[in-house]
Amino acid sequence: MVTLKINNIEAVVPEGTTVLEAARKAGIYIPALCQHPKLTPFGGCRLCLVEIKGMPRPVTSCTTPAAEGMEVATTSPVIERLRRTVLELILSDHPNDCMVCEQAGSCTLQELAYEYGIRENRFEGERRKYARKDGNPFIERDLEKCIMCGRCVKICDEVQGVEAIEFGYRGFDAKICTPFEEDLDCEFCGQCVSVCPTGALTGKLWSKKGRQLGVREVDSTCPYCGTGCMLTYHVKDNEIVRVTSKEDGLNEGLLCVKGRFAYKYVNSPDRLRKPLIKKDGVFVETSWDDALDLIADKLKEVKAEHGPDAIAGLSSARCTNEENYAFQKFIRAAIGTNNVDHCARL
């Protein structure tokens, strides 16, 4: 453990903790755009600069390991001036079209511009212009909004192990692209989308469906594989408009392409809406009352004629615990047979 002082507050943290992590633990806010708890430190955005006694210049708190006896100041007139300059520089090369941006309201850059009250900008100049071109149906890329924080590159490599994207080119022309700008070879997990601090990476499905206003969030569990990732449905007007995942679930905010992007089955036009009864080989819509009466009558009839073991029930691994419990109880207690199974083996 090392003991350091941050803004004159003593903090005791395990060795290897960065100054930024130590500050956050102590409840001290330091702005940052490129730092992310899942990723190795990058040190590119320069917003988390702090002053450390004995160091000749401000250092990035996200890359500096806390050391015994360190005295850190997370804010000072110089630090605030530098942060402001950095923000103005970023915004001077940003579309600033928050009005129509999908990410408005959940954009870290927007929030920092708001916090620093940046309306005027000393550094207007050329902005990067990119034609939008991507052939994938999941992820919308708007490179003009990219602030080169590198989170997407790092999560794709360090967490997802895919390395679909890289830094390309130099200086002002630097951009995130596929290696050698070849075709994208991607799992579309959308991890990059989830960590992008701006609107550079968003879900294609989200487009114009709703941002913050009138959107409810409902926490639930992913309906696909057995991992059981926690996810959050964003709902507007009885429609799921976005799926995200919170950091505190067992999956720590990670999802796969199915969990993140395959939610549109819910409001598919092919969904069944009414009970159907087959009459002369053709399905005819009917009422719940008639359908359930028919089923009850038929089951009673078969049970009476052939015994309960002539009836079988097949449940599903996609139904809830409660539904499965009730279903097997229905087959066992109401029908009277153990002919009940589900698709575990398949």
Partner: peptide, 11 residues
């Protein structure tokens, strides 16, 4: 599948 465990637990 998402609830193979639960469907089995629930018997």
């Amino acid at each position: 599948q998402n609830n193979v465990q639960g469907a089995s637990d629930a018997a």
